[in-house]
Amino acid sequence: MKDNALHVSIGGGKYRGKKLKLPSLSTTRSTKSILKESLFNTLQFDLCDAVFVEAFGGSGSIGIEAVSHGAKHAYFFEKDTAAFRVLEENCASVDKTSFTCKRGNTFELLPALIASLATPAYLYFDPPFSFREGMNEVYQACFDLTQNLPAKSIRMVIFEHMYPLEMPQILGDFTLHKTKAFGKSALSYYM
């Protein structure tokens, strides 16, 4: 029987080539390969033994790739039930001990996780762009959340966002380091 599910592959590291399922395109969108490659070229050896947090988990492809590139653990938040099932399945198919999936609202759950971490984390925001109903204010909510996070608990905050969305220069204790565009998407790094 043919598998009609959508897939994405891990592009590098110890899990290179491993296929991950994608949730429905009506609830999530996959990160472009070129954008993902640029992200991990930028982070390179900095991820060694780091903690990585993917604020909007989707398939988990970014956090799983972070562990593939040397992060010791990745945490994911996902609100959508169907996407959460795919996220858990993907994590279990790769390595059951290196991932923690949390179902629920990122804005409610993330601060407690960040406060509980013993190691400063890399925090990755890939909010659902404004194609979903009720997502018009998602960027401002992410900015507000970031401004209230303790800098001592975060190594870097990375936003995947629509281009040419103008990103704030300062978010609380974090300053925009650089932005790199990839067609209609971009990555912005805060330190």
Rank of each mutant, 00 (worst) to 15 (best):
T97M: 04
K102D: 07
A112E: 11
L113W: 09
E108A: 10
L117V: 06
A112L: 01
L113E: 13
T97I: 01
L113K: 12
N105P: 05
P111T: 04
K96F: 07
T119F: 00
A115D: 05
R132C: 10
K96V: 13
Y124N: 02
L123T: 07
Y124V: 01
T106P: 00
L117D: 05
F129L: 07
N105F: 05
F129S: 04
S116Y: 00
K102F: 09
E133Y: 07
N105W: 03
T100N: 10
L117A: 07
T106K: 00
G104K: 13
P128W: 13
A121K: 06
Y124T: 01
R132W: 06
S130A: 14
E108S: 10
E133A: 10
F131K: 02
F125K: 01
T119D: 13
T97A: 08
P127V: 13
S130K: 15
P128F: 11
T106V: 10
L113I: 11
P127Y: 13
F107M: 04
F107K: 03
S130I: 14
K96H: 12
Y122N: 01
F129V: 05
K102P: 00
F99L: 10
Y122D: 05
A112H: 06
F131H: 03
F125G: 02
P127Q: 13
P128D: 11
F131D: 04
S130Q: 14
A115T: 02
L109S: 12
N105Y: 03
P120I: 12
G104C: 08
L123M: 13
S98T: 01
I114V: 15
F129N: 03
P120W: 08
Y124K: 04
Y122A: 02
A121C: 15
L110D: 00
C101M: 07
L109A: 12
L123I: 15
K102C: 13
L117Y: 08
K102Q: 15
P111W: 04
L110F: 11
Y122H: 02
G104D: 12
N105Q: 07
S130W: 06
T97L: 04
N105C: 11
R132Y: 09
P120V: 15
S116C: 05
F129H: 06
K102I: 15
I114N: 09
L109W: 10
A112I: 02
T97K: 08
L110V: 08
L123V: 15
S130E: 15
F129R: 01
L117P: 07
A115C: 01
Y122C: 03
T100M: 10
C101A: 14
A115F: 02
P120H: 09
F131L: 09
T100A: 09
K96E: 14
D126H: 12
E108V: 10
E108L: 09
A118L: 12
D126W: 09
T119Q: 14
A121H: 06
F131I: 05
P120C: 13
P127N: 14
